[in-house]
Amino acid sequence: MLSVEQFLTLGAILFCIGLFGALTKRNIIIVLVSVELMLTAVNINLLTFARFGLTPSINGQIFTLFVMTIAAAEVAVGLAILIALYRNRNTSDVRDQDLMKW
């Protein structure tokens, strides 16, 4: 028998991996990827409650669908920004993008 806790734990672990990656990786693409990972972890949570929740329903799946759509849009825009940035500054290191500092 599967239980809610197993899926939630899996989601939490994936989320933390994604978070850590987003906070420490230096390549902007990988940072973006890590954010995607976090979104996937969230999706797993949503689906878990759609399946095992107190009132199981299809709504969780619909939400996940929306999240995936927005994530796709986000990746598209993010990568476009990355390309423009790279063209201008010739680097994809997140630490070089510090124009906003003092």
């Binding site: 987003a22 510090d98 124009l99 003092w102």
Partner: peptide, 17 residues
């Protein structure tokens, strides 16, 4: 205080976290 504004998005994220 201005040195806390280092422009690093990851630092800001970390502080937030």
């Amino acid at each position: 205080l201005k040195y806390s504004q280092n422009g690093q998005v990851q630092t800001y994220g970390l502080v937030t976290l």
